[in-house]
């Protein structure tokens, strides 16, 4: 029983990191309608930023976090302004943008590898080893922090989308681009902000990943696939849906390895991605009709 409970807790913790990746990704997707696969590298770049500023340069931790989130947001904006927007202006299809984004991901993955080497990096900020055991379930302090922070961020994100003018504009663009531009919403400005906020979220995810796991340059692809899978499960164009989907993915992975060898974690995720794309491309909470006939 406690094994099951432990798996559920582990699933929630993994899920919350996936959800942070997915929330930013799906925020960008819903307003821009193309697959920003390079979102994964924003997460990894943020992780290495923490390593560089905090562990190597000795910057105070909270200052490091603030700088990291700001730089991540600007990194995302730069990708949009320097690569995606020029491509869109040349009439590139969504497939071209997807391929370009896979290219960006690979490019920076290798740049990080050149700069920091391929070995794993440790941040060593919070005493990770110390676990708190309660009713047979063990959680580290860091894991509790991750859960709390991600929940706070999801609530803030939701409030932002519902209450602010910019958030409402984003939802308007994601529902109907043409209509939004008719009522005078500048969709490039909205896209700018979606990249800023989405990539800022990636920055937060990167900080938490850096604290929880060992950093390696190639982890971006995997994180991206997981975040993307979570988004697809929940509904890629609907941010709350993709958050729920990511938690489901985290749970499925951690419950799945109760019956399968632990190496199958990724296989479970990849198979769910493939099956959802084939049979339920809008996810379980997604709003729009499928894009079978684009």
């Amino acid at each position: 029983m406690s094994l099951l409970a432990q798996s559920i807790i582990n699933g929630l913790i993994t899920g919350s990191i996936y959800a942070l990746v997915a929330a930013g990704y799906s925020l960008i997707y819903s307003t821009n309608n193309f697959m920003h696969f390079a979102h994964g590298i924003s997460v990894v770049a943020a992780g290495y930023m923490v390593y560089w500023l905090f562990t190597l340069a000795g910057t105070p931790f909270y200052v490091t976090c603030i700088i990291t989130v700001i730089l991540s947001a600007l990194f995302g904006l730069a990708m949009y302004r320097l690569i995606y927007l020029p491509l869109q202006r040349k009439g590139a299809s969504n497939v071209i943008l997807l391929i370009a984004s896979i290219g960006i991901l690979t490019f920076f993955q290798n740049v990080i590898q050149i700069a920091f080497g391929s070995g794993v990096k440790l941040i060593g900020y919070i005493e990770v080893a110390k676990g708190i055991t309660f009713a047979g379930i063990t959680m580290t302090l860091l894991q509790i922090v991750i859960l709390v922070i991600s929940f706070i961020i999801f609530i803030m994100l939701y409030q932002f989308m519902q209450r602010t003018k910019l958030g409402r504009n984003m939802r308007a663009v994601s529902n109907n681009k043409e209509l939004a531009s008719i009522v005078g919403i500048n969709h490039i400005r909205v896209s700018d902000f979606s990249f800023l906020i989405g990539s800022g979220l990636a920055g937060v995810a990167g900080i938490l990943v850096a604290l929880e796991q060992n950093l390696s340059p190639l982890m971006g692809t995997n994180l991206m696939i997981k975040g993307f899978t979570g988004a697809v499960i929940g509904g890629i164009n609907y941010v709350p849906g993709s958050i729920v989907g990511s938690f489901l993915l985290g749970l499925a992975e951690n419950l799945g390895i109760l019956v399968l060898p632990s190496g199958y974690k990724d296989a479970i995720a990849f198979s769910m991605l493939f099956l959802f794309l084939l049979f339920k491309p809008n996810g379980i909470l997604g709003k729009k009709e499928g894009r079978f006939d684009k």
């Binding site: 193309f34 697959m35 391929i99 794309l277 894009r291 079978f292 006939d293």
Partner: peptide, 8 residues
């Protein structure tokens, strides 16, 4: 599937 969904 079509387009970027097929690609994904």
């Amino acid at each position: 599937l079509k387009g970027d969904y097929l690609a994904m």
